[in-house]
Amino acid sequence: MQQPIRLGSHEMMELHELLNFKTICAAKAKAIDGLVTDEQLKALVQQDLQQSLKALDELQTLLGRAQVQ
């Protein structure tokens, strides 16, 4: 099991906001991927999508371990 982590309530809020932002980033990156035809731009969009998904994982892991004080 993952170790719990003690967070201030404001830190929870920040992580939550970043989570929402990255969620929309991932959704937009997927939509834009379907729109662009330029190969180089497409490669960057796809890299950004993978990074957003990884960021979502990291943020969710932190939020899942959080013990608000």
Binding site: I5, R6, L7, G8, H10, E11, E14, L15, E17, L18, L62
Partner: peptide, 10 residues
Amino acid sequence: SLTECATPEV
């Protein structure tokens, strides 16, 4: 966000 966070892992 970074300016609002203190916990090293965060």
